[in-house]
Design a protein around this nucleic acid. Structure first.
Lengths: 242, 242
DNA sequence: CGATTAATTGAACCTGGTCAATCGGAGTGG
DNA sequence: CCACTCCGATTGACCAGGTTCAATTAATCG
Protein backbone atom coordinates (compact mmCIF):
# COMPACT_ATOMS: atom_id res chain seq x y z
CA UNK A 1 0.00 0.00 0.00
CA UNK A 2 1.52 3.25 -1.06
CA UNK A 3 0.86 6.61 0.46
CA UNK A 4 -1.51 9.00 -1.27
CA UNK A 5 0.33 12.22 -2.03
CA UNK A 6 -2.41 14.29 -0.50
CA UNK A 7 -2.00 12.37 2.72
CA UNK A 8 1.76 12.41 2.60
CA UNK A 9 2.90 13.23 6.13
CA UNK A 10 5.82 15.21 4.74
CA UNK A 11 3.55 17.66 3.04
CA UNK A 12 2.24 18.81 6.37
CA UNK A 13 5.63 20.07 7.51
CA UNK A 14 5.89 23.76 6.97
CA UNK A 15 9.37 23.31 5.59
CA UNK A 16 7.68 22.57 2.29
CA UNK A 17 5.90 24.98 0.00
CA UNK A 18 2.15 24.61 -0.14
CA UNK A 19 0.42 23.17 -3.16
CA UNK A 20 -3.12 23.12 -4.39
CA UNK A 21 -5.04 19.88 -4.35
CA UNK A 22 -4.96 19.85 -8.14
CA UNK A 23 -1.20 20.13 -8.13
CA UNK A 24 -0.89 17.30 -5.69
CA UNK A 25 -3.13 15.25 -7.95
CA UNK A 26 -0.78 15.65 -10.88
CA UNK A 27 2.13 14.54 -8.78
CA UNK A 28 0.11 11.59 -7.61
CA UNK A 29 -0.36 10.55 -11.23
CA UNK A 30 3.35 10.90 -11.88
CA UNK A 31 4.14 8.70 -8.90
CA UNK A 32 4.99 5.18 -10.00
CA UNK A 33 5.32 3.46 -6.67
CA UNK A 34 7.37 3.22 -3.55
CA UNK A 35 10.73 1.74 -2.75
CA UNK A 36 11.69 0.45 0.65
CA UNK A 37 15.32 -0.31 1.37
CA UNK A 38 17.46 -1.51 4.24
CA UNK A 39 20.39 0.40 5.71
CA UNK A 40 23.46 0.12 3.50
CA UNK A 41 21.49 -0.34 0.30
CA UNK A 42 22.65 1.61 -2.72
CA UNK A 43 19.72 3.44 -4.22
CA UNK A 44 21.57 5.13 -7.03
CA UNK A 45 25.03 4.31 -8.26
CA UNK A 46 27.61 6.63 -9.72
CA UNK A 47 28.04 6.07 -13.44
CA UNK A 48 24.77 4.26 -13.89
CA UNK A 49 21.75 5.53 -15.76
CA UNK A 50 18.96 5.38 -13.26
CA UNK A 51 15.57 4.60 -14.73
CA UNK A 52 13.91 6.28 -11.80
CA UNK A 53 13.69 9.43 -9.77
CA UNK A 54 12.97 9.43 -6.08
CA UNK A 55 11.74 11.58 -3.28
CA UNK A 56 12.82 10.50 0.16
CA UNK A 57 9.74 9.86 2.26
CA UNK A 58 11.43 8.67 5.41
CA UNK A 59 14.82 7.59 6.65
CA UNK A 60 18.26 9.04 6.24
CA UNK A 61 20.91 8.43 3.64
CA UNK A 62 24.12 9.69 2.25
CA UNK A 63 25.22 11.07 -1.08
CA UNK A 64 28.81 10.36 -1.98
CA UNK A 65 31.32 10.44 -4.77
CA UNK A 66 34.09 7.93 -5.15
CA UNK A 67 37.47 9.12 -6.36
CA UNK A 68 39.38 6.71 -8.49
CA UNK A 69 42.05 6.66 -5.81
CA UNK A 70 39.67 4.80 -3.54
CA UNK A 71 38.92 7.80 -1.34
CA UNK A 72 35.43 9.13 -1.26
CA UNK A 73 33.84 12.50 -0.68
CA UNK A 74 30.52 12.63 1.07
CA UNK A 75 28.56 15.31 -0.76
CA UNK A 76 25.79 15.66 1.77
CA UNK A 77 23.36 13.86 4.01
CA UNK A 78 19.97 12.92 2.68
CA UNK A 79 16.79 13.79 4.49
CA UNK A 80 13.09 13.24 3.90
CA UNK A 81 11.92 15.58 1.17
CA UNK A 82 15.14 15.35 -0.81
CA UNK A 83 14.66 14.65 -4.48
CA UNK A 84 17.27 12.44 -6.09
CA UNK A 85 18.12 11.15 -9.52
CA UNK A 86 17.58 14.40 -11.36
CA UNK A 87 21.18 14.45 -12.54
CA UNK A 88 20.84 11.16 -14.33
CA UNK A 89 17.63 12.35 -15.97
CA UNK A 90 19.14 15.48 -17.24
CA UNK A 91 22.77 14.61 -17.80
CA UNK A 92 22.64 10.99 -18.79
CA UNK A 93 24.19 9.38 -15.78
CA UNK A 94 24.62 9.73 -12.07
CA UNK A 95 27.75 11.39 -10.85
CA UNK A 96 27.36 10.31 -7.27
CA UNK A 97 26.09 7.36 -5.31
CA UNK A 98 23.19 7.38 -2.87
CA UNK A 99 23.18 4.96 0.02
CA UNK A 100 20.70 4.35 2.80
CA UNK A 101 21.88 4.69 6.38
CA UNK A 102 18.59 3.74 8.00
CA UNK A 103 15.65 1.87 6.55
CA UNK A 104 14.29 4.23 3.93
CA UNK A 105 11.06 4.65 2.09
CA UNK A 106 11.17 6.46 -1.20
CA UNK A 107 8.59 7.73 -3.60
CA UNK A 108 9.35 6.50 -7.12
CA UNK A 109 8.84 8.34 -10.41
CA UNK A 110 9.60 7.05 -13.85
CA UNK A 111 12.32 8.83 -15.66
CA UNK A 112 10.67 8.04 -18.99
CA UNK A 113 7.70 10.18 -18.03
CA UNK A 114 9.84 12.95 -16.63
CA UNK A 115 10.12 15.07 -19.71
CA UNK A 116 6.46 14.76 -20.49
CA UNK A 117 5.65 15.70 -16.93
CA UNK A 118 7.81 18.82 -17.12
CA UNK A 119 6.18 19.89 -20.33
CA UNK A 120 2.67 19.44 -19.05
CA UNK A 121 3.33 20.99 -15.68
CA UNK A 122 5.68 23.90 -15.98
CA UNK A 123 5.16 24.74 -12.32
CA UNK A 124 6.72 21.43 -11.39
CA UNK A 125 9.55 21.96 -13.83
CA UNK A 126 10.08 25.28 -12.14
CA UNK A 127 10.09 23.55 -8.76
CA UNK A 128 12.81 21.24 -9.92
CA UNK A 129 14.94 24.16 -10.93
CA UNK A 130 14.13 25.59 -7.54
CA UNK A 131 15.32 22.43 -5.80
CA UNK A 132 18.47 22.37 -7.86
CA UNK A 133 19.16 25.93 -6.90
CA UNK A 134 18.75 25.07 -3.23
CA UNK A 135 21.05 22.12 -3.61
CA UNK A 136 23.57 24.33 -5.30
CA UNK A 137 23.23 26.85 -2.52
CA UNK A 138 24.01 24.26 0.13
CA UNK A 139 26.94 22.91 -1.82
CA UNK A 140 28.33 26.41 -1.90
CA UNK A 141 28.01 26.61 1.85
CA UNK A 142 29.70 23.28 2.21
CA UNK A 143 32.54 24.41 0.04
CA UNK A 144 33.03 27.41 2.27
CA UNK A 145 32.97 25.19 5.32
CA UNK A 146 35.69 22.92 3.96
CA UNK A 147 37.77 25.66 2.47
CA UNK A 148 37.67 28.37 5.08
CA UNK A 149 37.11 26.75 8.43
CA UNK A 150 39.14 24.82 10.97
CA UNK A 151 38.23 21.26 11.85
CA UNK A 152 36.37 22.32 14.96
CA UNK A 153 34.46 24.97 13.12
CA UNK A 154 33.47 22.84 10.20
CA UNK A 155 32.44 19.99 12.45
CA UNK A 156 30.27 22.39 14.43
CA UNK A 157 28.90 23.71 11.16
CA UNK A 158 28.07 20.25 9.84
CA UNK A 159 26.33 19.18 13.02
CA UNK A 160 24.36 22.41 13.07
CA UNK A 161 23.26 21.93 9.53
CA UNK A 162 22.10 18.39 10.12
CA UNK A 163 20.41 19.31 13.34
CA UNK A 164 18.55 22.23 11.87
CA UNK A 165 17.32 20.20 8.96
CA UNK A 166 16.25 17.52 11.38
CA UNK A 167 14.48 20.10 13.53
CA UNK A 168 12.56 21.43 10.55
CA UNK A 169 11.33 17.89 9.93
CA UNK A 170 10.30 17.28 13.49
CA UNK A 171 13.05 14.78 14.14
CA UNK A 172 14.35 16.64 17.17
CA UNK A 173 12.94 15.94 20.60
CA UNK A 174 14.37 17.31 23.78
CA UNK A 175 17.25 18.82 21.77
CA UNK A 176 18.24 15.35 20.61
CA UNK A 177 18.03 13.63 17.28
CA UNK A 178 19.04 10.27 15.86
CA UNK A 179 22.15 10.36 13.71
CA UNK A 180 22.68 7.05 11.96
CA UNK A 181 26.01 8.04 10.43
CA UNK A 182 29.48 6.85 11.36
CA UNK A 183 32.46 8.98 12.21
CA UNK A 184 33.93 7.80 8.94
CA UNK A 185 30.95 9.27 7.09
CA UNK A 186 31.49 12.56 8.85
CA UNK A 187 35.23 12.47 8.22
CA UNK A 188 34.69 11.92 4.50
CA UNK A 189 32.13 14.70 4.43
CA UNK A 190 34.49 17.24 5.93
CA UNK A 191 37.71 16.07 4.37
CA UNK A 192 39.19 15.20 7.76
CA UNK A 193 40.97 12.05 8.83
CA UNK A 194 39.01 9.60 10.90
CA UNK A 195 41.30 10.08 13.86
CA UNK A 196 41.03 13.82 13.84
CA UNK A 197 37.28 13.60 13.40
CA UNK A 198 37.12 11.55 16.54
CA UNK A 199 39.25 13.98 18.48
CA UNK A 200 37.32 16.95 17.21
CA UNK A 201 34.06 15.36 18.29
CA UNK A 202 35.70 14.70 21.61
CA UNK A 203 36.48 18.37 21.97
CA UNK A 204 32.91 19.38 21.17
CA UNK A 205 31.68 16.89 23.71
CA UNK A 206 34.11 18.08 26.36
CA UNK A 207 32.94 21.65 25.89
CA UNK A 208 29.33 20.45 25.95
CA UNK A 209 28.61 22.03 22.60
CA UNK A 210 27.56 18.90 20.77
CA UNK A 211 27.32 15.42 22.24
CA UNK A 212 27.11 12.66 19.70
CA UNK A 213 27.28 9.05 20.74
CA UNK A 214 25.24 5.90 20.28
CA UNK A 215 23.60 7.33 17.20
CA UNK A 216 22.18 10.27 19.09
CA UNK A 217 23.19 13.86 18.63
CA UNK A 218 22.48 16.19 21.51
CA UNK A 219 22.94 19.93 21.20
CA UNK A 220 22.30 21.59 24.56
CA UNK A 221 22.81 25.14 23.35
CA UNK A 222 22.19 25.87 19.69
CA UNK A 223 23.48 29.41 19.85
CA UNK A 224 26.72 28.36 21.48
CA UNK A 225 27.38 25.82 18.77
CA UNK A 226 26.38 28.25 16.06
CA UNK A 227 28.90 30.68 17.47
CA UNK A 228 31.67 28.13 17.18
CA UNK A 229 30.56 27.31 13.66
CA UNK A 230 30.69 31.00 12.78
CA UNK A 231 27.38 30.46 11.13
CA UNK A 232 24.65 33.07 11.23
CA UNK A 233 21.43 31.61 12.59
CA UNK A 234 19.15 31.14 9.63
CA UNK A 235 15.57 30.06 9.32
CA UNK A 236 15.06 26.85 7.40
CA UNK A 237 14.63 27.60 3.73
CA UNK A 238 11.23 26.85 2.25
CA UNK A 239 11.46 24.27 -0.49
CA UNK A 240 9.17 22.51 -2.91
CA UNK A 241 8.24 18.89 -2.39
CA UNK A 242 7.68 16.64 -5.33
CA UNK B 1 24.16 47.27 -31.06
CA UNK B 2 23.44 43.95 -29.47
CA UNK B 3 24.20 40.58 -30.92
CA UNK B 4 21.42 38.59 -32.59
CA UNK B 5 21.09 35.26 -30.83
CA UNK B 6 21.20 33.39 -34.09
CA UNK B 7 24.52 34.99 -34.86
CA UNK B 8 25.86 34.56 -31.37
CA UNK B 9 29.43 33.36 -31.78
CA UNK B 10 29.08 31.17 -28.70
CA UNK B 11 26.36 29.14 -30.28
CA UNK B 12 28.78 27.89 -32.89
CA UNK B 13 30.99 26.20 -30.32
CA UNK B 14 30.19 22.54 -30.12
CA UNK B 15 30.33 22.70 -26.35
CA UNK B 16 26.73 23.85 -26.54
CA UNK B 17 23.67 21.84 -27.42
CA UNK B 18 22.13 22.63 -30.78
CA UNK B 19 18.86 24.46 -31.07
CA UNK B 20 16.39 25.00 -33.85
CA UNK B 21 16.02 28.42 -35.38
CA UNK B 22 12.59 28.72 -33.78
CA UNK B 23 14.04 28.03 -30.38
CA UNK B 24 16.70 30.63 -30.84
CA UNK B 25 14.00 33.07 -31.85
CA UNK B 26 12.16 32.64 -28.57
CA UNK B 27 15.35 33.26 -26.65
CA UNK B 28 15.96 36.33 -28.74
CA UNK B 29 12.58 37.65 -27.67
CA UNK B 30 13.39 36.98 -24.05
CA UNK B 31 16.66 38.83 -24.34
CA UNK B 32 16.37 42.30 -22.86
CA UNK B 33 19.74 43.73 -23.79
CA UNK B 34 23.42 43.52 -23.13
CA UNK B 35 25.60 44.55 -20.26
CA UNK B 36 29.23 45.49 -20.64
CA UNK B 37 31.38 45.80 -17.55
CA UNK B 38 34.96 46.55 -16.65
CA UNK B 39 37.24 44.22 -14.68
CA UNK B 40 36.45 44.33 -10.97
CA UNK B 41 32.80 45.22 -11.47
CA UNK B 42 30.28 43.38 -9.35
CA UNK B 43 27.57 41.99 -11.57
CA UNK B 44 25.52 40.32 -8.88
CA UNK B 45 25.83 40.84 -5.17
CA UNK B 46 25.24 38.36 -2.38
CA UNK B 47 22.08 39.14 -0.47
CA UNK B 48 20.58 41.32 -3.15
CA UNK B 49 17.57 40.53 -5.27
CA UNK B 50 18.79 40.80 -8.80
CA UNK B 51 16.21 42.07 -11.27
CA UNK B 52 18.05 40.37 -14.08
CA UNK B 53 19.49 37.12 -15.32
CA UNK B 54 22.59 36.93 -17.43
CA UNK B 55 24.43 34.72 -19.82
CA UNK B 56 28.12 35.43 -20.12
CA UNK B 57 28.91 36.24 -23.75
CA UNK B 58 32.59 37.00 -23.35
CA UNK B 59 35.14 37.64 -20.68
CA UNK B 60 35.95 35.85 -17.45
CA UNK B 61 34.68 36.36 -13.95
CA UNK B 62 34.50 34.84 -10.55
CA UNK B 63 31.72 33.60 -8.31
CA UNK B 64 32.39 33.99 -4.62
CA UNK B 65 30.80 33.85 -1.23
CA UNK B 66 31.80 36.08 1.64
CA UNK B 67 31.88 34.61 5.12
CA UNK B 68 30.92 36.92 7.89
CA UNK B 69 34.43 36.50 9.29
CA UNK B 70 35.78 38.43 6.35
CA UNK B 71 37.16 35.39 4.57
CA UNK B 72 35.74 34.43 1.24
CA UNK B 73 35.29 31.24 -0.69
CA UNK B 74 35.59 31.33 -4.43
CA UNK B 75 32.86 29.02 -5.70
CA UNK B 76 34.06 28.80 -9.26
CA UNK B 77 35.37 30.68 -12.24
CA UNK B 78 32.92 32.07 -14.76
CA UNK B 79 33.25 31.42 -18.45
CA UNK B 80 31.34 32.40 -21.55
CA UNK B 81 28.14 30.41 -21.71
CA UNK B 82 27.58 30.43 -17.97
CA UNK B 83 24.12 31.45 -16.89
CA UNK B 84 23.91 33.47 -13.70
CA UNK B 85 21.26 34.90 -11.48
CA UNK B 86 19.00 31.88 -11.46
CA UNK B 87 19.32 31.53 -7.71
CA UNK B 88 17.90 34.95 -7.07
CA UNK B 89 15.04 34.22 -9.43
CA UNK B 90 14.13 31.04 -7.76
CA UNK B 91 15.12 31.56 -4.14
CA UNK B 92 14.55 35.24 -3.65
CA UNK B 93 18.08 36.46 -3.30
CA UNK B 94 21.61 35.78 -4.42
CA UNK B 95 23.77 33.73 -2.14
CA UNK B 96 26.99 34.58 -3.86
CA UNK B 97 28.61 37.50 -5.58
CA UNK B 98 29.70 37.61 -9.20
CA UNK B 99 32.62 39.81 -10.20
CA UNK B 100 34.26 40.47 -13.53
CA UNK B 101 37.96 39.75 -13.87
CA UNK B 102 38.26 40.93 -17.46
CA UNK B 103 36.01 43.21 -19.44
CA UNK B 104 32.82 41.22 -19.82
CA UNK B 105 29.85 41.28 -22.09
CA UNK B 106 26.67 39.71 -20.81
CA UNK B 107 23.35 38.91 -22.31
CA UNK B 108 20.55 40.32 -20.13
CA UNK B 109 17.16 38.78 -19.42
CA UNK B 110 14.43 40.24 -17.26
CA UNK B 111 13.63 38.29 -14.19
CA UNK B 112 10.04 39.49 -14.30
CA UNK B 113 9.51 37.63 -17.56
CA UNK B 114 11.32 34.55 -16.37
CA UNK B 115 8.40 32.62 -15.02
CA UNK B 116 6.28 33.40 -18.04
CA UNK B 117 9.12 32.31 -20.28
CA UNK B 118 9.46 29.00 -18.44
CA UNK B 119 5.77 28.33 -18.72
CA UNK B 120 5.60 29.07 -22.42
CA UNK B 121 8.77 27.21 -23.28
CA UNK B 122 9.09 24.08 -21.24
CA UNK B 123 12.15 23.05 -23.22
CA UNK B 124 13.96 26.10 -21.93
CA UNK B 125 12.77 25.42 -18.40
CA UNK B 126 14.17 21.96 -18.82
CA UNK B 127 17.44 23.44 -20.03
CA UNK B 128 17.67 25.50 -16.90
CA UNK B 129 17.26 22.44 -14.77
CA UNK B 130 19.91 20.88 -16.94
CA UNK B 131 22.28 23.76 -16.32
CA UNK B 132 21.62 23.64 -12.61
CA UNK B 133 22.41 19.96 -12.59
CA UNK B 134 25.69 20.59 -14.38
CA UNK B 135 26.56 23.29 -11.92
CA UNK B 136 25.75 20.95 -9.08
CA UNK B 137 27.89 18.30 -10.68
CA UNK B 138 30.89 20.58 -10.83
CA UNK B 139 30.41 21.76 -7.28
CA UNK B 140 30.50 18.13 -6.21
CA UNK B 141 33.78 17.69 -8.04
CA UNK B 142 35.15 20.78 -6.40
CA UNK B 143 34.14 19.51 -3.01
CA UNK B 144 36.04 16.32 -3.67
CA UNK B 145 39.05 18.32 -4.77
CA UNK B 146 39.11 20.37 -1.59
CA UNK B 147 38.27 17.52 0.72
CA UNK B 148 40.32 14.66 -0.61
CA UNK B 149 43.34 16.08 -2.33
CA UNK B 150 46.67 17.59 -1.35
CA UNK B 151 47.50 21.17 -2.26
CA UNK B 152 49.51 20.10 -5.28
CA UNK B 153 46.79 17.79 -6.48
CA UNK B 154 43.96 20.23 -6.08
CA UNK B 155 45.93 22.99 -7.72
CA UNK B 156 46.62 20.71 -10.66
CA UNK B 157 42.98 19.78 -10.70
CA UNK B 158 41.82 23.39 -10.69
CA UNK B 159 44.16 24.41 -13.48
CA UNK B 160 43.08 21.40 -15.53
CA UNK B 161 39.46 22.28 -15.09
CA UNK B 162 39.96 25.87 -16.16
CA UNK B 163 42.15 24.90 -19.04
CA UNK B 164 39.75 22.29 -20.35
CA UNK B 165 36.83 24.66 -20.19
CA UNK B 166 38.94 27.25 -21.95
CA UNK B 167 39.91 24.74 -24.59
CA UNK B 168 36.29 23.84 -25.25
CA UNK B 169 35.65 27.53 -25.88
CA UNK B 170 38.57 27.98 -28.20
CA UNK B 171 40.51 30.12 -25.76
CA UNK B 172 43.58 27.92 -25.92
CA UNK B 173 46.24 28.52 -28.53
CA UNK B 174 49.56 26.76 -28.57
CA UNK B 175 48.68 25.09 -25.26
CA UNK B 176 48.36 28.52 -23.63
CA UNK B 177 45.43 30.50 -22.38
CA UNK B 178 44.90 33.83 -20.67
CA UNK B 179 44.14 33.56 -16.97
CA UNK B 180 43.11 36.91 -15.55
CA UNK B 181 42.90 35.70 -11.96
CA UNK B 182 45.22 36.44 -9.08
CA UNK B 183 46.91 33.94 -6.82
CA UNK B 184 44.63 35.19 -4.09
CA UNK B 185 41.62 34.18 -6.19
CA UNK B 186 43.07 30.75 -6.63
CA UNK B 187 43.96 30.46 -2.95
CA UNK B 188 40.42 31.33 -1.93
CA UNK B 189 39.05 28.87 -4.44
CA UNK B 190 41.06 25.99 -3.06
CA UNK B 191 41.02 26.90 0.59
CA UNK B 192 44.79 27.37 0.66
CA UNK B 193 46.79 30.22 2.08
CA UNK B 194 48.18 32.72 -0.36
CA UNK B 195 51.73 31.78 0.52
CA UNK B 196 51.19 28.12 0.03
CA UNK B 197 49.37 28.76 -3.21
CA UNK B 198 52.39 30.58 -4.46
CA UNK B 199 54.73 27.81 -3.45
CA UNK B 200 52.50 25.16 -4.93
CA UNK B 201 52.39 27.00 -8.22
CA UNK B 202 56.16 27.23 -8.00
CA UNK B 203 56.36 23.50 -7.68
CA UNK B 204 54.16 22.94 -10.71
CA UNK B 205 56.26 25.35 -12.68
CA UNK B 206 59.48 23.72 -11.58
CA UNK B 207 58.22 20.34 -12.72
CA UNK B 208 57.01 21.92 -15.94
CA UNK B 209 53.50 20.65 -15.39
CA UNK B 210 51.75 24.00 -15.42
CA UNK B 211 53.38 27.37 -15.98
CA UNK B 212 51.29 30.32 -14.96
CA UNK B 213 52.69 33.81 -14.98
CA UNK B 214 51.84 37.17 -16.46
CA UNK B 215 48.22 36.15 -16.82
CA UNK B 216 49.07 33.26 -19.09
CA UNK B 217 48.64 29.62 -18.22
CA UNK B 218 50.75 27.19 -20.19
CA UNK B 219 50.25 23.44 -19.89
CA UNK B 220 52.87 21.63 -21.93
CA UNK B 221 51.58 18.13 -21.23
CA UNK B 222 47.92 17.73 -20.39
CA UNK B 223 48.18 14.07 -19.52
CA UNK B 224 51.04 14.65 -17.12
CA UNK B 225 49.10 17.31 -15.26
CA UNK B 226 45.96 15.20 -15.27
CA UNK B 227 47.97 12.41 -13.70
CA UNK B 228 49.06 14.67 -10.86
CA UNK B 229 45.50 15.86 -10.42
CA UNK B 230 44.34 12.25 -10.23
CA UNK B 231 41.60 13.27 -12.56
CA UNK B 232 40.34 10.96 -15.27
CA UNK B 233 40.50 12.64 -18.66
CA UNK B 234 36.96 13.59 -19.55
CA UNK B 235 35.42 15.05 -22.63
CA UNK B 236 33.80 18.44 -22.11
CA UNK B 237 30.19 18.02 -21.12
CA UNK B 238 27.60 19.24 -23.59
CA UNK B 239 25.46 21.97 -22.10
CA UNK B 240 22.54 24.13 -23.12
CA UNK B 241 23.08 27.79 -23.92
CA UNK B 242 20.42 30.30 -23.11
C1' DC C 1 34.26 -17.86 20.46
C1' DG C 2 36.69 -15.90 16.57
C1' DA C 3 35.76 -12.26 13.18
C1' DT C 4 34.45 -7.86 11.84
C1' DT C 5 33.28 -3.01 12.38
C1' DA C 6 33.18 1.43 14.96
C1' DA C 7 35.16 4.19 18.43
C1' DT C 8 39.05 5.72 21.01
C1' DT C 9 43.71 7.07 22.37
C1' DG C 10 48.78 8.00 22.08
C1' DA C 11 52.89 9.38 19.62
C1' DA C 12 55.62 10.87 15.73
C1' DC C 13 55.58 13.37 11.80
C1' DC C 14 54.61 16.63 7.98
C1' DT C 15 51.67 19.46 5.13
C1' DG C 16 50.23 23.69 4.99
C1' DG C 17 49.44 28.12 7.83
C1' DT C 18 51.29 32.37 9.86
C1' DC C 19 54.46 36.09 10.21
C1' DA C 20 57.50 39.06 8.07
C1' DA C 21 60.25 41.04 4.66
C1' DT C 22 61.37 42.01 -0.20
C1' DC C 23 60.75 42.84 -5.09
C1' DG C 24 58.78 44.55 -9.35
C1' DG C 25 55.45 46.93 -12.04
C1' DA C 26 51.77 50.40 -12.56
C1' DG C 27 49.86 54.52 -11.39
C1' DT C 28 50.13 59.32 -9.41
C1' DG C 29 51.52 63.68 -7.92
C1' DG C 30 55.14 67.04 -7.68
C1' DC D 1 61.72 62.50 -14.48
C1' DC D 2 61.62 61.07 -9.83
C1' DA D 3 59.67 59.88 -5.36
C1' DC D 4 55.95 57.61 -3.34
C1' DT D 5 52.42 54.32 -2.97
C1' DC D 6 49.81 50.31 -3.90
C1' DC D 7 49.20 45.70 -5.28
C1' DG D 8 50.50 41.17 -6.61
C1' DA D 9 54.14 37.90 -6.55
C1' DT D 10 57.88 35.73 -4.08
C1' DT D 11 60.76 33.83 -0.42
C1' DG D 12 62.42 32.34 4.28
C1' DA D 13 61.69 30.95 9.03
C1' DC D 14 58.86 29.14 12.35
C1' DC D 15 54.98 26.76 14.07
C1' DA D 16 50.56 24.19 14.60
C1' DG D 17 46.66 21.84 12.96
C1' DG D 18 45.78 17.72 11.16
C1' DT D 19 47.63 13.13 9.22
C1' DT D 20 49.55 8.70 9.73
C1' DC D 21 50.75 4.69 12.17
C1' DA D 22 49.68 1.64 15.67
C1' DA D 23 47.36 -0.44 19.31
C1' DT D 24 43.21 -1.15 22.31
C1' DT D 25 38.38 -1.37 23.55
C1' DA D 26 33.54 -2.38 22.75
C1' DA D 27 29.76 -4.14 20.32
C1' DT D 28 27.62 -7.07 16.97
C1' DC D 29 27.27 -11.28 14.41
C1' DG D 30 27.55 -15.96 12.54
Amino acid sequence: MTIQCQHCPLRRKDLFADMTLAEIETIQRFKAGELVVEPGAQILVEGSTAPQLYTVLSGLGIREKKLHTGDRQVINFLFPGDFIGLQASVMGEMNHTVEARTPMRLCVFNRSEFWDFCKKHPNRAYDMTWMSAIEEHFLGETLAALGQRSALQSMAWALMRIYQRGAALGMVRDSRMTLPYTQRDMADALGLSLVHTNKTLGKLKERELALWSDQVLHIPDLDALAAVAEMPAQAPRLRPLL
